[in-house]
Amino acid sequence: MDGSFILSHVPDYLSGAWVTLRFGLYGVLCSLALGLVCCLLCYFRVPIFHWIAKGYIELARNTPLLVQLFFLYAGLPRVGIRFSAEACAVIGLTFLGGAYMSEAFRSGLESVDRAQVEAGACIGLTAGQNMRYVIFPQALATAIPALFANVIFLIKETSVFSVLAMMDLMNVADTLRTSGGRTVEVLFMLIVAYLLILLPVSLLATLVERRLRYAGFGDQHSV
């Protein structure tokens, strides 16, 4: 391996990593918001909207991100709906991630004991207060591992952003590979870059899960 090649291209990878990380993060945050909204719509069975949410979740979970992006980026403009590549990236990732986040929240909510819901109602809380103070905190604790798994999944999925001509890690590597031919070095740096991004996320997940377990309101739902 050529050390000087590697060193000289660190800045390229840094800028690629920044794109991956930034748009991954936007996607994750929007997915969390969308997922939360969808799962609440379904939980409270909001008329009509909960059917829309369910339909969307099925659509998003059963199609590849790559296909979704092609539709957004190359298909929609032909009927007059045009987004920038960056917007497509965030919209695509959110479309995919929102469904997965919603499922994670849903299984968290389902894990909360019915008796807890009733106990909350019995001290006179409104449905909203009950959700906010009693149900959701417990659901969140159960959902955390699945939510983190989704975060890692979504950041990995950003690797197809190169079809939007975005200079993310994957595209940086691909460009260097085709121009310089140093395939081994290029791929090596790609691996290292993804590891550096995803390892901290995974460590954070472990840390949070452990803290939750020690905080130990796990006695309700020992899985």
Binding site: I152, M170, T183, V184, L187
Partner: peptide, 20 residues
């Protein structure tokens, strides 16, 4: 497998194996 995007793995095998 958990950390590497499948696309990266594809690149490694498709382009990398030819080199190495």
């Amino acid at each position: 497998v958990r950390f590497m995007p499948q696309l990266v793995l594809l690149y490694i095998v498709y382009f990398g194996f030819a080199r190495v």
